[in-house]
Simulated assay, not measured.
Amino acid sequence: MQTTTLRQLVTTTGPFTSVYFEDSHDTEDAAKQLELRWRELRDQLAAQHAPDESLDALEAAVRDSSRPVGRSGRGLVAAGNAVVVDEQLDEPPAAPVTRVSDLPYVLPLTRYAKPGLKYVVATVDQVNATVRAYDEHGGEIAADDVTGREHPVHHVRGGGTAQYPMRQHTEETIRRNVADVAEDVTRLADRIGAELVVIAGEIQGRRAVCEALPKRLREITQEVTHSDVASEVVLTAKQRRLDEVLERFHNALNSESGLAVDGLEAVTAALVEGNVETLLISDPQDATVYVGDSPTHIAVAEAELRTMGAREVRQRRADEAVPVAAIAVGADLVYVDSALTEGFGAILRHN
């Protein structure tokens, strides 16, 4: 995931209260279940000595936000009386995650919120279309209804040369409608920098629109029968991105390019140099590191930080300190299911 929206965590003073939980609304009593779930989560956080002001801020965020549709999860991080992270998760955690600590805990965010993807979904027929654009968090940011020319849009059956003008008129009407839809899809896709376009509808209509798109958009377009499956297409595209990142990491790690490292010592050294493009995380368990005066003063041994001139050295959990250091250098964060040495790997910016 891109960390632009998380940069404020680097300069925010803790303690941080982090919570990740299921926020599904796919049953009639979903609101009641959420209320009960939040009470349990608040009790768990209070038992970890979360500040009351942070708990109140989190509660307001849970109660006042718009409700998602279907299965989903929620990730919230508060500091003081403010919520500094509020993200919908692509899939809910198997069990709630709560933590109160001096550093923000964002590892579950990388695990359950897949990489951002800007996309456009168009539901089309031979006459009309609804075109919607979504940001990298899945929020709708633009919507257009394209109304085409309705008569005639069906080919006239039967013989005789008298029917030729009517057929030509029908074909021209369809062609213009398709061109209008393709133009609108292109406009919205270019406006948001879409990385995926989904065209839904009956096969003749959607195929015509796809063929009318510029080549650069056809290359990122997928056709589906109904817009209801667009979310599945998006999730598949996100997973494909993760797979590509992992493949790139392993290829670099096994080559002589020097553009990938694994293990805490190598990863922290690269973070100190600001040389991490993408941080990969699997399961660091209870590993710890030492941090100094800034997030990128980080090492596996206290003596290393002393040589950097760090005045104050503190031991911190690696699953908190390493992601925060990556955010500080503008690196992407990616959670992977495959094992990494000591739970961390990195794709480097340069060797």
Rank of each mutant, 00 (worst) to 15 (best):
S66G: 08
E53F: 07
F21E: 04
V69F: 12
F21T: 06
D23P: 03
S66Y: 05
L55S: 11
A79S: 13
E53T: 12
W38M: 04
S24M: 00
P51S: 09
D43K: 13
G80M: 00
Q33F: 01
V84F: 00
R67K: 14
E59C: 07
S66P: 01
F21Y: 11
A57D: 07
R74D: 02
D23A: 13
E40K: 13
S65F: 10
S72C: 09
G70T: 06
V84W: 01
A82F: 00
D43E: 15
D86E: 07
H25N: 14
E35K: 14
E53Y: 09
V85N: 06
D52S: 13
A78E: 04
E40I: 11
G70V: 06
E22G: 14
H49L: 09
S72M: 01
D29Q: 06
S54N: 11
A79G: 00
D29V: 08
D52W: 05
H25E: 07
V84T: 03
E28V: 13
S65R: 15
L45K: 09
A82K: 11
R39V: 10
K32I: 08
Q88K: 07
E28H: 10
D23L: 05
D23Y: 10
L55G: 12
A60E: 14
A50Y: 06
R42A: 13
D64H: 11
E53Q: 13
V62N: 06
E35G: 13
L34Y: 02
G75D: 02
T27H: 08
Q48I: 04
V62E: 08
L34C: 06
A31H: 06
